[in-house]
Design a protein around this nucleic acid. Structure first.
Lengths: 232, 232
DNA sequence: GCAAAAGTGTTGGCGGTACACCCATGT
DNA sequence: ACATGGGTGTACCGCCAACACTTTTGC
């Protein structure tokens, strides 16, 4: 930043965003991947992403690419880390601002499969080897998700608007990879008074149907501004 | 990432790194700032930083700029966040990968003051208004430091190699902005068995001199690989 | 001997964990 | 009626917070 016409003096890397997309379904954490149609890494699975436009910031770019390549919009998205190794892209110098998104799978299950590009949800236990340094990006995204879910109420972003406590517990158990005591889990969650009871239960199951709740985002916002901390 | 000759199709932003530099001295958290010698923001204080070279990644760039502009090297440094708003730099489209560094002030007190550029340590309570979006970057760096110090042993990076427990406690109290009980603090820290006792005390003070300790980095590394968690 | 800061153990309360039985529903 | 999973309360233990006196040193 030492000159006015720096633009002529400094070669510039290309800048892209990539987005790790998490979903949750049938007791499994899932990832939405896209099969690359061109070289490099043609036929290899990768995270959706693309080049930053001059009139958007990286958040906007990540959301735009997410929508263009998968039809997903209006979801939780957060910057993860910036990857800048010199040889991370065989085409040349590309630095990538990586994001991760949490998707209510029920809302977007269908579109992703229909997409022109072959997008596909993979169970986290069956992720193929990925293009570029995306294996590394995935590892970081998983770590972030696992630690963040413990002290921020982001788990709800992976469930439908209305969900049951067994579903929520199942989500936590899956992501944290450990069993939780049902009574203690309910107690902890309900004590926050952040769940709205819909006075309505799951129907058509051969046992007592679980009650539906939803997460009170506004209340959480108010409380967290006053120093309240969500912790599981 | 849809074509091979993308480099001709996509305009590229400039990429820089900036580094928030924390120090600790005399019971105060401090920041090393540089007064800008040229427009824009001539005469305004800012974090050291500069343009990414084609043969280095952003970590290397941050360390290089840190050394070139302040003489500081071989310190703790970590990526903070990438700032990419369209108008964050009046000269044009510049995205910045921000870092923060923790410096043992005793090692670098002198050089920084001598530097050709006017670099100066500011107490955190007396930070002037900064250039670009550096006020925002600072806020994020402070939040990161405050939360990270609670669950990672990074506080030691701000003290001399040998330090006393009262010094360490003072550091925590300053950063967390709350008083801690001396006995409980000592207990918690010593229970980790991560401090090496140097069997040596502060001399020349008109009271009992505190014992010197140092942090056992290797032991911490071993333990944390086995799942040990440092928490204050 | 006095001032100033370092060093040292114990107790009570709270929160987290462990644990077993009854309830509702569909077949 | 039976199988399946949902919902509920209590007791114990461990951890954290609160707290006061003794020790060392320089002047």
């Amino acid at each position: 930043m030492e000159t006015n016409n720096y633009c002529y003096e400094y070669p510039r890397p290309s800048v892209t965003t990539d987005c790790v997309i998490f979903g949750f379904d049938a007791g499994e954490l899932k990832l939405l991947l896209i099969e690359r149609g061109i070289e490099p890494f043609k036929g290899i699975w990768a995270f959706p992403g693309g080049f930053l436009n001059m009139e958007e910031n990286s958040d906007e770019c990540a959301r735009r690419e997410l929508f263009e390549e998968t039809g997903i919009e209006n979801v939780f998205i957060e910057q993860l880390y910036t990857f800048s190794d010199v040889n991370r892209d065989p085409r040349g110098r590309v630095i990538t601002v990586a994001y991760y998104a949490l998707v209510k799978l029920s809302d977007f299950k269908i579109q992703a499969g229909d997409d022109a590009q072959s997008a596909k949800w993979f169970p986290i236990s069956q992720i193929p080897s990925l293009a570029f340094d995306h294996n590394l990006i995935l590892r970081m995204a998983l770590n972030r998700l696992r630690s963040k879910i413990r002290y921020q109420p982001i788990g709800f972003e992976l469930l439908s608007e209305k969900f049951t406590l067994p579903e929520l517990q199942n989500l936590y158990e899956t992501i944290l990879e450990k069993q939780l005591d049902r009574r203690n889990f309910r107690k902890k969650i309900l004590e926050t008074h952040l769940l709205i009871d819909h006075q309505e239960s799951v129907k058509g199951v051969p046992h007592k149907g679980a009650k539906y709740f939803s997460f009170d985002k506004n209340k959480y916002k108010t409380l967290s501004e006053r120093g309240f901390n969500f912790e599981i």
